[in-house]
Design a protein around this nucleic acid. Sequence first.
DNA 1: CGGGGAGATTTTAACGTTCAAACCCGTGGC
DNA 2: GCCACGGGTTTGAACGTTAAAATCTCCCCG
Lengths: 336, 336
Amino acid sequence: MATLKQVAAHADVSVQTVSNALNAPHRLRPDTLERVTRSIELLNYRPNRNARSLRTSAVELIGYCVPSWQGGQAHLVMDQFLHALCAAAETTGRHILLFTAPAGADGMSVYEDLHARRLVDGFVLSQTETHDPRHGWLKEQRIPFVSFGRVWKESTQPGPYVDVDGAGGCAMATRHLYDGGRRRIGFLGWPRTSGLAEDRLGGWRETCVELGLPVDGLAVHCVEDTFDEGARGAASLLDASEPVDAIVALSDVLALGALRELNRRGLAAGTDVALTGFDDSPLASVVSPALTSVRQPIDLIASELITILTGPADSEVPAERLLQPELIVRGSSAPG
Amino acid sequence: MATLKQVAAHADVSVQTVSNALNAPHRLRPDTLERVTRSIELLNYRPNRNARSLRTSAVELIGYCVPSWQGGQAHLVMDQFLHALCAAAETTGRHILLFTAPAGADGMSVYEDLHARRLVDGFVLSQTETHDPRHGWLKEQRIPFVSFGRVWKESTQPGPYVDVDGAGGCAMATRHLYDGGRRRIGFLGWPRTSGLAEDRLGGWRETCVELGLPVDGLAVHCVEDTFDEGARGAASLLDASEPVDAIVALSDVLALGALRELNRRGLAAGTDVALTGFDDSPLASVVSPALTSVRQPIDLIASELITILTGPADSEVPAERLLQPELIVRGSSAPG
DNA sequence: CGGGGAGATTTTAACGTTCAAACCCGTGGC
DNA sequence: GCCACGGGTTTGAACGTTAAAATCTCCCCG
């Protein structure tokens, strides 16, 4: 555990010169820089981050509240997201600090505490809820943050965010099915109360209208994110007087439920009925036929989040980035 | 951002007395404690962790390398694990710092760096591989760590670990199927090269032998962790001259593949053929019939990891904890 | 009434770093 | 030959905390 002082003694310069060698090398004469660098290498010196943070009051840590997996949709792409976020932070020399907090306003004291004790510089928020209280509060406290996901149903977004265009994704899937010859495309969704669900539903509906396809009675609202509900929803779409020839599902889990229902009825997914999911979770490539799914650009999301959070905070207008997802075409949506 | 100094001025005591009020309240006279406490409250003081860490050289942060999700089995319970680890750390006032590192020996410099720069006190390892080089190296460097998962195929485990008794879990599943009247129980596994796979296979085999059940030709080694492979494996068990009446799968994904194959053949899972998975991933409760699965005690694992890591490091014999999983019985394993 | 102690509080110093100011020294202008 | 200049380096101070030692206060006992 060498310190600046020891390196300085070894290189026969002052402590500050060693510090400069690391933080402002241009200030040193080439030969001193060389000498100091050798001493640093030799003693295997690493700056003590605590001392540095104390002096500069910047910890280079970003807080992320790890969602509880309880209730409702499983976070099937959480690990991908965390990995990406971590990697993005590391490209700027920062790291991610995890913590847990109660949902809603109760959790806010945790955010405040972490910041006040200088464990983190700022926060990345996810699992954004309708009327999420965190954003406004953090903004008011002038604590740096950026949100993955819009705050739905607010007139103005409080603070910077990165989000994926769910409507665009579903539009893309719908158009892809249309291009494959499908003309009666159903939608498997969640209840309207979720802003995310409404966004995706809108993408499907508008595209259908645009393409002159029917939409009435073709949107099913599943009550929870399970295979069963997906299967039930698919069944009702298939049992209609005029059955669908394709289904856009709002999640991979619903899509897999639909896939099961198709199998059960002896219908070939991708041939008789085309099917798409959302999220491109690990599951999508593990079933057969493999599931066509809308993939969120996880790496890009993460790097945008970090860029915004660590970028200049002076701008008055908050950064808002809406990213386009990508359609990963697999067997389940072969042309009919 | 109040500091000790400001609180001290406000309470009209010395800085050290305020520090003592927080770290050793018994040293203060009750009335001074009361007065200082009021000042702390009033000024909303929070100790600066960087200053504290600098002085005490303990950062109260634990490093965890977030696994890359590439290749092979999806980490379907990763988010549960992280949440639990985080919560466990917080009960001791610590937090989890995430980082990424290349697999194998290449990643070791990352561990060294994080520790040398004092970003973390120690590490929790997971995704332990056969002959994992990290453990021995960390031990040699005297960097505190604890491993989730044994280092397979080492004569002696280098350092403390917490693991789940996979053999015990599969034994439990097998016995449960036996108790439900099943007498010909197959096993869906992975190749023998994985220590984990061999452990679980052993649990099934030994229990069958013990119960007088056949094992020859009843273990199938799937080459990857996909629905397809699970289905293929199940098919081969069902096509045998004497077909199985139950299947123990090494993972939930394989089990769901088997479930699909059963459905395809018009066999009722839980009635005609009983089925169990492993990990109790979010998927298990989302299919129907819901999947009986062996659940690892995630919360207990996490708290044991933290206890060991933060406990006294002086003991010569490393802590080794082998925890028993729990069988979550659902519809897929109803008595036959 | 002086000394011994225990308990409460303060003083001093240090953790390892960086910022700001000061210093040193060679160069070039006048 | 003096002075201003500027690049390179050092000095001094500070970030906010805690450990250890020093001091102060009060009380008890011989």
